[in-house]
Computed example of a mutant assay.
Amino acid sequence: MKGKKIEKKDKFTNIFIDNKLPFLELRHSNTGNHYKEHIHDSFSMGINIKGESIYKNRNKEYNFKENLIAIINPEEIHSCNAISKDNHEFYMLYLDKNWCYEIQKTISNKINSFQNYPNALINSHTFYEEFKTLCEFIFSKATVQEKENELIEFFTKLFENSIPHTKEKLEDKNFEKICKYLKKHFKENISLEELATKFNLNPFYIIRLFKQNINMTPHKYLINIKINHSKELLKKGETLVDTALECGFADQSHFHRNFLNIVATTPNQYRKNFI
């Protein structure tokens, strides 16, 4: 991960980029800077955390504040500027259009080009909080695989709002082969790209296989295998440190976070039931 930081008094701009996630750029800013109308070749989303601004897009003007999400399709002329002279804090996320198109194809195989999102604005407290959490997670110390998984999950959900699902189920023996491989190599932090290389498949095709067969991403499936194995070790009285290492988690924090998400209790609380 590379981070750039521009700071003056209470102003700041933090930028997340990572060569393992080349399709993504995320900005977290607190600034009163004003921008003229402009375009991006990326698909963009943004939220205000503090302060209000005027958001212009698709020949319309919006009073942009908390709980609203700005959606900017590639090549759309837009601007977003603070109403007052005070700084306003915001997240702005930019995604490569081709990456978005690949996610859209996991939802429907009947599209042959990137589909613009129909709305310039989403008014939803729930979706706003999910996007804010995603941005915070991307800036966290979570693994690249976890960040990629959360991005896939979030943007699949977003595009499902505007793209009809493909109804037919994919029948491919590679699905069972990949599952078997993950069960055998669960101690490794296998990336989507590694799976694609191993089975000579498009990584987004693998996502589609998993979503249509078990409604989860390959990474989430792998994490579930790790957690199920960790439960057996904890029942036998293994320490948290040894269990985390044995199951291939990056560290104890990584293990704790994922165990809590899936089992709804901490590894230590779970272990106490058996010792």
Rank of each mutant, 00 (worst) to 15 (best):
K2P: 13
I6D: 01
K8P: 08
K11M: 14
K11A: 12
T13Y: 11
N14A: 07
I15N: 09
D18V: 11
K20S: 02
L21R: 08
P22S: 15
L24W: 07
E25G: 15
R27D: 08
N30W: 00
N30G: 04
T31P: 03
H34P: 00
K36I: 07
S44N: 06
I49F: 05
I49M: 07
G51T: 00
E52T: 15
S53Q: 10
I54C: 05
Y55A: 01
Y55M: 11
N57M: 10
R58Q: 14
F64S: 04
F64Y: 10
F64T: 09
K65G: 11
E66H: 01
N67E: 01
L68R: 03
I72Y: 05
N73M: 06
E75M: 10
E76M: 01
S79P: 00
C80M: 04
A82R: 01
S84F: 12
E89P: 02
F90P: 03
F90Y: 11
L95V: 04
K97M: 07
K97Y: 00
W99Y: 10
E102C: 03
Q104I: 09
T106V: 00
T106S: 04
S108W: 12
S108G: 07
N116T: 15
N116M: 09
Y117F: 07
A120L: 14
I122T: 08
I122F: 12
T126Q: 04
E130D: 04
E136W: 02
K141S: 07
K141Q: 10
A142D: 09
A142P: 08
V144A: 08
V144M: 12
V144D: 10
V144F: 12
N149P: 14
L151R: 02
T156A: 01
K157P: 15
F159M: 13
F159H: 05
H165D: 13
E168C: 13
K169E: 05
E171D: 04
K173L: 15
K173E: 06
K173H: 08
N174L: 04
F175A: 13
F175T: 04
E176Q: 14
K177T: 07
I178T: 14
K180Q: 14
Y181R: 14
Y181Q: 00
F186E: 10
E188W: 00
S191W: 03
S191Y: 01
L192R: 05
E193W: 06
L195G: 03
F199Y: 15
N202D: 06
Y205T: 00
I206R: 09
R208E: 08
F210L: 09
Q212H: 07
N213F: 02
I214N: 10
N215F: 08
N215S: 13
T217Y: 13
P218E: 06
H219V: 05
H219C: 02
H219R: 06
K220N: 04
N224Y: 12
I225W: 03
I227Q: 06
N228K: 14
E232I: 13
K236C: 09
G237N: 03
E238R: 14
E238N: 11
T239H: 11
V241S: 13
D242S: 13
D242R: 05
E246S: 12
E246L: 15
C247Y: 13
Q252D: 06
H254W: 14
N258Y: 03
N258H: 05
F259A: 12
F259G: 04
L260M: 10
N261G: 08
V263M: 15
A264D: 11
T265S: 06
N268Y: 12
Q269A: 02
Y270L: 08
K272T: 12
N273T: 03
F274T: 02
F274M: 00
